[in-house]
């Protein structure tokens, strides 16, 4: 199952549509790492609203994705983790290291916008 990746301004939005296999997740990681460079994106949002479970492999892959994206100069934001999924991740002992999160896509976009504005101010405007 291919995950569609949309471009919205300086951001990439990967919106997961259905349950993903391990191979699908690795493909998504590689696609995003490549496209961040191709489109010179500053942020990547991965929307997991439809996922009804995230196991250790999914969390490990998303953490490594975020680290790779960071090395490419952009930030990764995970949005849409459902309450049951959050509960289960905590029980499993899974920590998402180096990945920012937001409630949903809307919150995620405004977080990235705010961050970009902040960055410009720091840049001396």
């Amino acid at each position: 199952m291919l995950v569609p990746i949309l471009r919205q301004g300086p951001y990439l939005i990967a919106s997961i549509q259905s349950a993903l296999t391990d191979a699908d997740l690795l493909r998504l990681r590689d696609d995003l790492v490549e496209q961040v460079g191709r489109y010179r994106s500053r942020g990547v949002i991965v929307d997991v609203t439809v996922l009804d479970v995230m196991d250790s492999f999914a969390v490990r892959t998303i953490s490594s994705l975020a680290q790779m994206i960071k090395l490419r100069g952009a930030e990764t934001l995970l949005v849409g983790i459902q309450p049951e999924v959050a509960f289960t991740m905590v029980q499993l002992g899974l920590a998402l290291t180096g990945v920012a999160t937001a409630l949903d896509l809307e919150e995620g976009l405004s977080y990235l916008d705010e961050r970009d504005k902040g960055g410009e101010r720091v840049g001396g405007r």
Binding site: D22, D52, V53, M54, D55, S56, F57, Q82, P83, E84, V85, F87, T88, Q91, L92
Partner: peptide
């Protein structure tokens, strides 16, 4: 509960993997 169903699903996933 729906949390329990997610928990069961995650445990199955870990063991299957």
């Amino acid at each position: 509960s729906s949390s329990d169903l997610t928990v069961i699903s995650a445990a199955i996933s870990e063991i299957a993997r």
